[in-house]
Every structure is written in structure tokens, then in C-alpha cells.
Design a binder for these strands. Structure first.
Length: 300
DNA sequence: TTGCAGGGGTCAA
DNA sequence: TTGACCCCTGCA
């Protein structure tokens, strides 16, 4: 990649990076643990650490890390080894994607922790983003480890064994609602290794998906999110309400099922389906109104 | 002020 | 294929 990594006081600066906009990456629905600060930077908890990300011109500044952690953790987490320019070039052959990419040009798909993403997306079912964030935060605050940064206390996401030992009622108290029993049961299954969660990235998309569907609270959409956001299966195309709206608006008829929409996208976008999904999601959610999207398009 | 619909789906019938 | 589901917010 054509950028330069420079060490600075308590942080790292990447000079001249392309295809990296913190807002696009951290506010496109793939992660629930980032907070927008007054100075427009983002502070997040991931991989048991706190990191702050800011953008100045063509430079991205990572505060509260060092070169070792950057190489070992954040380089992979922020997917910095991938050429998003090439991905965008390929996807831009599609007219709708070309437009969508203009809105989310700096999107990257993070490589997040499988376990945290599994639980976070169980919580996401029939829920709203602020509520999801609150529940994940509450769980972390109750069972995670303290991390101090910049005068504030942050909390890591607790390990499977810890949540497996919590009761469903305690999990419900964190604001998870009817999903509490799913989380409790899932934590026990992971803890007992009934499913080898951390081995799923090596067994292929279809197999990994079948394994994920064994967890209560994990259906087609949630499993696709886990596959895409934590396991590197870029063929996955999660169809949530926004993607459904944008797909029906631009590509398929109004009565096409969610399963058919996914198949249509995977046939069209192949191994780049997951990237296409993120651009479309961001585009639909940030630049088009719900009503606008639900009007039928004329140029199918 | 109160009441009600609905939300990044999944489960059970 | 359809309704229930926690719980909070937005809007009559």
C-alpha cells in the first residue's frame, strides 16, 4: 500500500493513506463500540484496548498505541493491507454502486473479534443502534475489565466463560430484553466449545454459516454479519431493512424474498458482496430517506 | 399527558 | 407464513 507509518508520542500516524475515513468506517453499522468525540475523533474499545482515531488532511492519527500493537493488532483490525481502491474500481462498474461509493468512499470492513460480534449481533435483532450500543456497553461495564484512558474508564468486552457464568436475568438487566436467554445459551455453548467459534474462519463460508446457525438468536442475517465483520467471509451479504429497501429500489422487484435478494447480490457481486453491502447500507441510510427508497424505481 | 407503533430479526407454531 | 417478543423513542 502506498502510505507511510510514523511513530509519534503515544501514537501512530499514517501519512497519505487512501480509502480511510473514520466516520465511514466506524459509523456504518459494523461496530457498536465507538464514540464520536467533540474534536470529531472516534474513541473505541476493541481487542481489550482503547484507541482513538482522528483524521487530519490525508493523515490518520491513532492515539494510545505503539508500533508493536499497531503492527500486531490494529493493522489487521482496520484491514490496512487491503487495496480498497481496487475493490471500488471493480464495484463501480455497477452504476448504483458507483453512486453509493461516493457517499462512503472511506469505508473499510473491520476484522473484529468473533465472540464480541456474535453477541453484539444477537442483540441487534429487532433493535435500534443506540439501544444495541447501550446493551453492549452495559454488558462490558458489568463483566469486562477496566481500562483507563484520557481521564475516563472504559471496559473491555467480557470473555465467553464470564458470560456463561452469568444468569439470563443478569444479562437481561443490561437492556438486552428477550435476547437475554439467547445470549446466555450462546455463551454456554461457546464456553463448552459445542461450536469452535474461533475455528470458523478456516472452514469455508457455507460450513461456518451452518455452525453459526446453531446458536439461538442467530438467523440468516445475523450469521452473515458475523461472517463478514469478524471472519473475513466477503461473500456474505447481510440483508437488513436498509439493504432490503435499497435493493428493492434499484435491483429487484418488491415481492422478492430476503433469501433471493442475498442470492441476487452474491451472483452479481461475487467475492465482493460484503463490500458492496456496506457501501449500499451506508448510502441508503445516510443519503436517502426511507420514503424515497420505498417508492418503486423505474430503472430496474 | 398518554398511548401506540415500530425498530440492523429470530423463534415457534 | 405469521405473530410475539424487551424496551425505548418519536409522534399523534
Amino acid at each position: 500500500m502506498n502510505y507511510k507509518i510514523v511513530e509519534k508520542d503515544k501514537g501512530i500516524v499514517i501519512e497519505g493513506i487512501k480509502d480511510f475515513v473514520p466516520e465511514h468506517i466506524l459509523d456504518c453499522g459494523q461496530s457498536f463500540r465507538w464514540v464520536l468525540e467533540d474534536d470529531k475523533s472516534y474513541t473505541g474499545v476493541a481487542m481489550g484496548r482503547v484507541i482513538n482515531v482522528n483524521m487530519e488532511g490525508n493523515n490518520v492519527i491513532f492515539n494510545n498505541t505503539d508500533l508493536d500493537d499497531f503492527k500486531n493488532i490494529w493493522y489487521d483490525y482496520f484491514d490496512l493491507g487491503r487495496d480498497y481502491g481496487k475493490i471500488k474500481e471493480k464495484l463501480s462498474k455497477d452504476d448504483v454502486l458507483k453512486e453509493a461509493i461516493k457517499y462512503g468512499e472511506g469505508i473499510r470492513i473491520l476484522n473484529q473479534d468473533e465472540w464480541e460480534i456474535l453477541i453484539s449481533f444477537i442483540i441487534s435483532a429487532n433493535n435500534r443502534i443506540p439501544m444495541i450500543k447501550r446493551a453492549v456497553n452495559n454488558i462490558s461495564q458489568r463483566w469486562g475489565k477496566h481500562i483507563f484512558y484520557n481521564g475516563k474508564t472504559y471496559y473491555s468486552f467480557p470473555k465467553p466463560d464470564v458470560l456463561a457464568n452469568a444468569t439470563a436475568d443478569e444479562i437481561k438487566e443490561c437492556g438486552t430484553g428477550f435476547r437475554a436467554k439467547y445470549i446466555s445459551e450462546t455463551a454456554k455453548m461457546v464456553s463448552k466449545r459445542e461450536v469452535d467459534l474461533y475455528g470458523l474462519k478456516d472452514i469455508g463460508y457455507e460450513n461456518a454459516r451452518q455452525e453459526l446457525l446453531k446458536f439461538p438468536g442467530v438467523g440468516p442475517k445475523v450469521s452473515d454479519c458475523i461472517l463478514l465483520f469478524s471472519m473475513g467471509y466477503y461473500k456474505a451479504f447481510p440483508v437488513d431493512v436498509w439493504v432490503k429497501r435499497v435493493m428493492r429500489h434499484f435491483y429487484v422487484a418488491e415481492d422478492v424474498s430476503l433469501k433471493k435478494i442475498e442470492e441476487f447480490a452474491q451472483d452479481r457481486f461475487k467475492d465482493l458482496s460484503g463490500f458492496a453491502q456496506e457501501y449500499l447500507f451506508y448510502y441508503a441510510r445516510n443519503s436517502m430517506g426511507k420514503d424515497e427508497l420505498e417508492q418503486m424505481s423505474t430503472n430496474k
